[in-house]
Write a protein that binds this DNA or RNA. Structure first.
Lengths: 193, 193
DNA sequence: CGGATCGTTGATCAACTTCAACGGTCGTGG
DNA sequence: CCACGACCGTTGAAGTTGATCAACGATCCG
């Protein structure tokens, strides 16, 4: 169950066997069925979750009832409503499974304790968060700079796995465009070739 | 020079006098004149900078020569091309001063050493990065969900200081709209009242 | 098998951009 | 210290991009 987890952690920091054991005990395993919620808007996000297997998404719903993707998370990614998890306020996002999933979850008190007891995990998360910031910055630039077609093309270049694995309407929402527009863009691109 | 710096750090973690002294020694003070570059695209971002005084911005320039704001940083904020700073690759962003500024800068080797020697600083940055992620997520949602007018209104509500202190054309770029559109939006809003 | 959901296509519409022009202000060099 | 140029915000008119509304076939799942 922890195979992928430790592989990923060890890419950034090296844990002793004792530290690994300590870390393990803070996590709760959980299985999730396709379409099942991990978190619903309004609830407090009690867990930060590592995806061992499967595929999840986080998204918010606007006044008009439209969904806007925040993030996709598959094997090796973390997911939560970061703000709700850290502040204890109710969540603005929903999280659910696009494919059946297996998770490793940790609560905030355990997270705080773990990062204090195992400073390498503090470091791991600092690095993780850094990389997340970089990724979000890029997405933001992309969103503010490029046309719908350019955004899609860049995504297809940099994250081809995402295009392959995730339904088209969710990709559209992730890019901040309508499914119709994305469909037309894809048609347009194949015509060009 | 370090007044604001330690005020800000102490809001998140408590440092002993000895730790403060240790931390101080890793930083280099620097003054910057209005319009002066701290970083130019193509150079490596050697420093992570804390703003003691003044106002800076980071932005990138697209193929058509248009600027896109990434971030503004005034008293109490940090600024860098995060990716370049951490990876040593050349920077995609420019950073310059909108107002005369005083900075405290740290190099990556010193940053790594400091966070290892003073784990509280590791924690400080982990928290800082967390908050940054939350802010970037919100901006991204805002960018993908709302109309130009809604984006501006929300910004004016949540960051009124920003509206007051930063030239309108830069705010437009920050919101991913043209200066003309922002001008019309503002006119429109005052008409409504 | 039947209903729901998804991707596609067409037609129309609204939001925002682009291009152009003008007045005001700021700061810089003579 | 003044004058000039550069830059900024504003306004107007026209153009473009992407959203919206609607309809249809295909596929998936129960």
């Amino acid at each position: 169950m922890f195979n992928l987890f430790f592989t990923h952690v060890q890419e950034k920091v090296l844990l002793s066997t004792a530290e690994q054991e300590l870390v393990k005990n803070y996590f709760i395993p959980k299985k999730l069925r396709k379409k099942q919620y991990l978190l619903q808007e309004g609830d407090v996000c009690k867990y930060l979750s590592f995806v061992e297997k499967g595929l999840l998404r986080s998204y918010n719903v606007d006044d008009k009832g439209l969904e806007h993707m925040i993030q996709f998370a598959w094997e090796g990614w973390w997911i939560a409503d970061t703000y709700s998890f850290l502040s204890g306020e109710s969540a603005a996002y929903n999280i659910d499974a696009i494919e059946d999933a297996e998770l490793l979850m940790i609560t905030l008190p355990h997270f705080e304790e773990m990062t204090l007891k195992v400073p390498k995990m503090e470091r791991y998360f600092r690095i993780l968060f850094q990389n997340n910031i970089i990724a979000k910055e890029r997405r933001l630039i992309s969103s503010n700079t490029y046309s719908a077609e350019e955004k899609y093309t860049k995504l297809a270049e940099t994250q081809p796995q995402l295009i392959q694995r995730i339904p088209q309407n969710l990709i559209a929402s992730y890019l901040g465009i309508t499914p119709e527009t994305l469909s037309r863009i894809r048609k347009n691109i194949t015509l060009k070739k």
